[in-house]
Protein backbone atom coordinates (compact mmCIF):
# COMPACT_ATOMS: atom_id res chain seq x y z
CA UNK A 1 0.00 0.00 0.00
CA UNK A 2 1.23 3.47 -0.89
CA UNK A 3 2.06 5.60 2.10
CA UNK A 4 0.10 8.80 2.47
CA UNK A 5 -0.27 11.92 4.61
CA UNK A 6 -3.92 12.23 5.60
CA UNK A 7 -6.20 14.03 7.96
CA UNK A 8 -8.16 11.27 9.66
CA UNK A 9 -11.38 11.84 11.59
CA UNK A 10 -11.29 10.73 15.22
CA UNK A 11 -14.37 8.58 15.72
CA UNK A 12 -13.63 7.39 19.26
CA UNK A 13 -11.24 8.06 22.10
CA UNK A 14 -11.77 5.62 24.94
CA UNK A 15 -9.84 5.86 28.21
CA UNK A 16 -9.10 2.21 29.03
CA UNK A 17 -7.52 3.10 32.36
CA UNK A 18 -5.69 6.11 33.77
CA UNK A 19 -2.97 6.18 31.12
CA UNK A 20 -4.05 4.06 28.13
CA UNK A 21 -6.26 5.45 25.39
CA UNK A 22 -7.78 3.69 22.41
CA UNK A 23 -8.20 6.15 19.54
CA UNK A 24 -10.19 5.14 16.49
CA UNK A 25 -9.66 6.90 13.16
CA UNK A 26 -11.68 6.80 9.97
CA UNK A 27 -9.55 6.23 6.88
CA UNK A 28 -10.18 7.00 3.22
CA UNK A 29 -8.04 4.30 1.63
CA UNK A 30 -8.95 0.66 2.29
CA UNK A 31 -7.67 -0.44 5.72
CA UNK A 32 -7.57 -4.12 4.69
CA UNK A 33 -4.25 -3.36 3.06
CA UNK A 34 -2.60 -2.41 6.37
CA UNK A 35 -0.49 -5.30 7.69
CA UNK A 36 -0.30 -6.34 11.36
CA UNK A 37 2.84 -4.74 12.79
CA UNK A 38 2.76 -1.64 10.60
CA UNK A 39 2.64 1.78 12.26
CA UNK A 40 1.38 5.32 11.79
CA UNK A 41 3.22 8.57 12.47
CA UNK A 42 1.05 11.21 14.09
CA UNK A 43 1.43 14.98 14.21
CA UNK A 44 0.56 16.16 17.70
CA UNK A 45 -1.22 19.50 17.97
CA UNK A 46 -1.46 21.66 21.10
CA UNK A 47 1.82 20.40 22.51
CA UNK A 48 4.44 23.13 22.06
CA UNK A 49 7.31 20.84 23.08
CA UNK A 50 6.39 18.18 20.56
CA UNK A 51 8.13 19.05 17.33
CA UNK A 52 8.43 15.69 15.59
CA UNK A 53 5.65 13.26 14.78
CA UNK A 54 5.00 10.38 17.19
CA UNK A 55 4.92 6.76 15.95
CA UNK A 56 2.22 4.30 17.07
CA UNK A 57 1.52 0.74 16.04
CA UNK A 58 -1.76 0.05 14.32
CA UNK A 59 -3.74 -1.62 17.11
CA UNK A 60 -6.40 -3.05 14.82
CA UNK A 61 -8.32 -2.29 11.66
CA UNK A 62 -12.09 -2.37 11.20
CA UNK A 63 -12.96 -3.10 7.56
CA UNK A 64 -16.72 -2.59 8.08
CA UNK A 65 -16.30 1.06 9.08
CA UNK A 66 -12.97 1.41 7.24
CA UNK A 67 -11.26 2.55 10.42
CA UNK A 68 -8.10 1.82 12.29
CA UNK A 69 -7.15 2.28 15.90
CA UNK A 70 -4.06 3.14 17.90
CA UNK A 71 -3.41 2.42 21.55
CA UNK A 72 -1.68 5.35 23.19
CA UNK A 73 0.03 5.23 26.56
CA UNK A 74 0.36 8.75 27.97
CA UNK A 75 3.97 8.97 29.13
CA UNK A 76 5.16 12.40 27.95
CA UNK A 77 3.99 15.69 26.49
CA UNK A 78 3.11 14.33 23.06
CA UNK A 79 1.21 11.28 24.18
CA UNK A 80 -0.61 13.28 26.90
CA UNK A 81 -1.76 15.87 24.36
CA UNK A 82 -2.83 13.10 22.01
CA UNK A 83 -4.80 11.32 24.71
CA UNK A 84 -6.92 14.47 25.13
CA UNK A 85 -8.13 14.43 21.53
CA UNK A 86 -11.91 14.43 21.11
CA UNK A 87 -14.27 12.60 18.81
CA UNK A 88 -14.92 14.76 15.74
CA UNK A 89 -11.42 16.26 15.65
CA UNK A 90 -8.85 15.29 13.04
CA UNK A 91 -5.39 13.76 13.32
CA UNK A 92 -2.69 14.35 10.72
CA UNK A 93 -1.23 10.92 10.11
CA UNK A 94 1.45 9.46 7.82
CA UNK A 95 0.68 5.79 7.17
CA UNK A 96 1.02 2.89 6.74
CA UNK A 97 4.70 2.64 7.62
CA UNK A 98 7.12 -0.23 8.13
CA UNK A 99 6.78 -3.94 7.56
CA UNK A 100 4.45 -6.35 9.27
CA UNK A 101 4.86 -9.56 11.21
CA UNK A 102 5.19 -12.88 9.41
CA UNK A 103 1.74 -14.36 8.86
CA UNK A 104 1.09 -17.88 10.13
CA UNK A 105 -0.09 -20.74 7.95
CA UNK A 106 -3.40 -22.40 8.70
CA UNK A 107 -3.04 -24.78 11.64
CA UNK A 108 0.20 -23.31 12.98
CA UNK A 109 0.42 -22.67 16.72
CA UNK A 110 1.80 -19.21 17.49
CA UNK A 111 2.52 -17.27 20.68
CA UNK A 112 2.02 -13.52 20.58
CA UNK A 113 3.69 -11.76 23.48
CA UNK A 114 2.99 -8.18 24.54
CA UNK A 115 4.48 -6.28 27.44
CA UNK A 116 3.06 -2.96 28.60
CA UNK A 117 1.87 -0.87 25.67
CA UNK A 118 3.70 -3.40 23.47
CA UNK A 119 0.39 -5.23 23.39
CA UNK A 120 -0.71 -2.55 20.88
CA UNK A 121 0.07 -4.32 17.56
CA UNK A 122 -0.96 -7.73 18.93
CA UNK A 123 -4.72 -7.25 18.54
CA UNK A 124 -4.44 -6.84 14.78
CA UNK A 125 -1.97 -9.73 14.55
CA UNK A 126 -4.15 -11.98 16.72
CA UNK A 127 -7.31 -11.26 14.74
CA UNK A 128 -5.73 -11.86 11.34
CA UNK A 129 -3.85 -14.96 12.58
CA UNK A 130 -7.13 -16.41 13.84
CA UNK A 131 -8.88 -15.58 10.55
CA UNK A 132 -6.13 -17.48 8.73
CA UNK A 133 -6.86 -20.49 10.94
CA UNK A 134 -3.84 -20.46 13.25
CA UNK A 135 -4.02 -21.69 16.83
CA UNK A 136 -3.32 -18.41 18.61
CA UNK A 137 -1.94 -18.03 22.13
CA UNK A 138 -1.53 -14.56 23.59
CA UNK A 139 0.75 -13.83 26.54
CA UNK A 140 0.28 -10.40 28.10
CA UNK A 141 2.49 -8.93 30.78
CA UNK A 142 1.89 -5.84 32.91
CA UNK A 143 3.04 -4.42 36.21
CA UNK A 144 -0.19 -4.92 38.16
CA UNK A 145 -3.79 -6.01 37.73
CA UNK A 146 -4.79 -2.39 37.08
CA UNK A 147 -2.35 -2.08 34.21
CA UNK A 148 -3.88 -4.98 32.31
CA UNK A 149 -6.22 -3.85 29.57
CA UNK A 150 -8.20 -5.37 26.70
CA UNK A 151 -8.05 -8.94 28.06
CA UNK A 152 -11.62 -9.76 27.00
CA UNK A 153 -10.97 -8.42 23.50
CA UNK A 154 -7.87 -10.57 23.15
CA UNK A 155 -9.85 -13.64 24.29
CA UNK A 156 -11.90 -13.42 21.07
CA UNK A 157 -8.86 -14.34 19.03
CA UNK A 158 -6.98 -16.89 21.12
CA UNK A 159 -6.05 -18.39 24.45
CA UNK A 160 -4.88 -15.62 26.77
CA UNK A 161 -2.11 -16.07 29.37
CA UNK A 162 -1.30 -13.35 31.87
CA UNK A 163 1.53 -12.22 34.12
CA UNK A 164 1.96 -9.34 36.54
CA UNK A 165 5.15 -8.19 38.24
CA UNK A 166 3.41 -8.28 41.64
CA UNK A 167 1.24 -11.35 41.15
CA UNK A 168 -2.04 -9.42 41.38
CA UNK A 169 -3.29 -11.14 38.21
CA UNK A 170 -2.10 -14.26 36.42
CA UNK A 171 1.33 -15.68 37.04
CA UNK A 172 3.69 -13.54 39.16
CA UNK A 173 6.81 -12.37 37.33
CA UNK A 174 7.82 -11.46 33.82
CA UNK A 175 6.32 -12.94 30.68
CA UNK A 176 9.33 -15.26 30.42
CA UNK A 177 8.41 -16.74 33.82
CA UNK A 178 5.08 -17.96 32.47
CA UNK A 179 4.80 -21.76 31.99
CA UNK A 180 3.51 -21.26 28.44
CA UNK A 181 7.11 -20.33 27.57
CA UNK A 182 8.72 -23.35 29.24
CA UNK A 183 8.91 -25.25 25.97
CA UNK A 184 6.09 -27.76 26.64
CA UNK A 185 3.89 -26.40 23.88
CA UNK A 186 5.74 -26.35 20.54
CA UNK A 187 5.06 -22.97 18.99
CA UNK A 188 5.93 -22.30 15.36
CA UNK A 189 6.87 -18.78 16.33
CA UNK A 190 7.02 -16.21 19.10
CA UNK A 191 6.00 -12.72 18.02
CA UNK A 192 6.77 -10.07 20.56
CA UNK A 193 6.51 -6.37 21.28
CA UNK A 194 7.41 -4.58 24.50
CA UNK A 195 10.29 -2.92 26.31
CA UNK A 196 13.74 -3.89 24.99
CA UNK A 197 14.82 -5.90 28.08
CA UNK A 198 11.62 -7.94 27.85
CA UNK A 199 12.10 -8.63 24.14
CA UNK A 200 15.66 -9.71 24.79
CA UNK A 201 14.50 -12.07 27.53
CA UNK A 202 11.92 -13.52 25.14
CA UNK A 203 14.62 -13.85 22.49
CA UNK A 204 16.77 -15.85 24.96
CA UNK A 205 13.84 -18.18 25.66
CA UNK A 206 13.29 -18.56 21.94
CA UNK A 207 16.91 -19.64 21.50
CA UNK A 208 16.60 -22.14 24.38
CA UNK A 209 13.36 -23.53 23.01
CA UNK A 210 14.64 -23.45 19.42
CA UNK A 211 11.63 -21.43 18.40
CA UNK A 212 11.55 -18.84 15.65
CA UNK A 213 11.11 -15.35 17.12
CA UNK A 214 10.13 -11.96 15.78
CA UNK A 215 10.35 -8.74 17.77
CA UNK A 216 8.96 -5.30 16.99
CA UNK A 217 11.43 -2.55 17.90
CA UNK A 218 10.48 0.95 19.02
CA UNK A 219 13.58 3.01 18.33
CA UNK A 220 13.39 6.78 18.47
CA UNK A 221 12.35 8.13 15.07
CA UNK A 222 12.53 11.49 13.34
CA UNK A 223 10.91 10.78 9.96
CA UNK A 224 9.41 7.28 10.07
CA UNK A 225 9.90 6.61 6.37
CA UNK A 226 13.59 5.98 5.83
CA UNK A 227 15.14 9.36 5.07
CA UNK A 228 16.80 10.55 8.29
CA UNK A 229 18.68 7.34 9.23
CA UNK A 230 18.18 8.11 12.93
CA UNK A 231 16.30 4.96 13.96
CA UNK A 232 18.94 2.34 13.17
CA UNK A 233 19.55 -0.96 14.87
CA UNK A 234 22.61 -3.15 14.37
CA UNK A 235 22.06 -6.25 12.27
CA UNK A 236 24.43 -8.82 10.79
CA UNK A 237 24.22 -6.81 7.57
CA UNK A 238 25.11 -3.51 9.24
CA UNK A 239 22.84 -0.74 10.49
CA UNK A 240 19.24 -1.02 9.35
CA UNK A 241 16.42 1.49 9.73
CA UNK A 242 13.76 0.28 12.12
CA UNK A 243 11.14 2.38 10.33
CA UNK A 244 11.56 0.91 6.84
CA UNK A 245 13.40 -2.38 7.32
CA UNK A 246 11.52 -3.13 10.57
CA UNK A 247 9.97 -2.44 12.94
CA UNK A 248 9.56 -6.23 12.97
CA UNK A 249 12.84 -8.17 12.89
CA UNK A 250 13.69 -11.83 13.19
CA UNK A 251 16.01 -12.10 16.20
CA UNK A 252 18.50 -14.05 14.09
CA UNK A 253 19.17 -10.91 12.07
CA UNK A 254 19.88 -8.69 15.08
CA UNK A 255 23.22 -8.20 16.81
CA UNK A 256 21.66 -8.78 20.20
CA UNK A 257 23.92 -10.41 22.81
CA UNK A 258 21.53 -13.14 23.87
Amino acid sequence: MKKEVSNLLVTKNIALNHDNFLIELKADSPVEQILPGQFVNVKVEKSPNTFLRRPFSVHDTYPVTNSLSILVKAIGDGTKALSAIKEGQYLDVVFPLGNGFKMPSKGETVLLIGGGVGIAPMMHLARISKEIGADVHILLGARTLNDHILIEEFKRYGKVHLTTDDGSLGKKGFVTDHPVMDGEIRFSRYQCCGPDPMMQAVARKAKQNETECEVSLENMMACGFGVCLCCVTKTHEGNKCVCTEGPVFNINDLEWQI
Binding site: F51, M220, M221, C230, C231, V232, T233, G238, N239
Partner: peptide, 10 residues
Protein backbone atom coordinates in the same frame (compact mmCIF):
# COMPACT_ATOMS: atom_id res chain seq x y z
CA UNK B 1 28.26 2.68 9.02
CA UNK B 2 27.71 6.01 10.75
CA UNK B 3 27.49 6.49 14.52
CA UNK B 4 25.85 4.27 17.11
CA UNK B 5 22.22 4.64 18.18
CA UNK B 6 20.89 6.92 19.67
CA UNK B 7 21.57 9.34 16.86
CA UNK B 8 18.68 11.71 17.40
CA UNK B 9 17.29 13.86 20.17
CA UNK B 10 14.31 16.14 19.93
Amino acid sequence: EGNDYPRMAE
